[in-house]
Amino acid sequence: MTTTPEDNGPPTEVTDAEIAAMHDDPRFVELKRTLFRFTVPVLLAALAWYLVYVLLSAYARDFMGIVLFGNINLGLILGLSQFVVTFYVTWAYNRFTARKFDRQSAELREDIMSGGGK
């Protein structure tokens, strides 16, 4: 497989048809599946947890007011948990792309740009 030094060389001319041809390549199908398998469940879970938090704020105020220690109640901890979830998902997605997605995706890109895919 030829590699194209993307950063240095002149922009490679590539037609829309050449790009579209990759869509049915099993490797691209696999790339999409890998990506969606990570993003869809993770995003749905994070948004569901957010929705639970909003619903608890609206309808379960006594529950949110349960004091855990000092003046720290459950509402504050659950609110802070939204920050933790957001930071964690960001970190996990970064790790996922570094380990799997970026390599697979770069390989397909180089194939298309060098015309080696077909």
């Binding site: 590539v14 790009i19 579209a20 990759m22 691209f28 790339l31 995706s105 770069a106 397909l108 298309i112």
Partner: peptide, 19 residues
């Protein structure tokens, strides 16, 4: 379908993206 195919390939591989 052809433009959809090329849009998805562009989106996920970056092929043909603006430099």
């Amino acid at each position: 379908p052809d433009r959809f195919a090329s849009m998805q390939v562009r989106a996920f591989t970056g092929a043909g993206a603006e430099r």
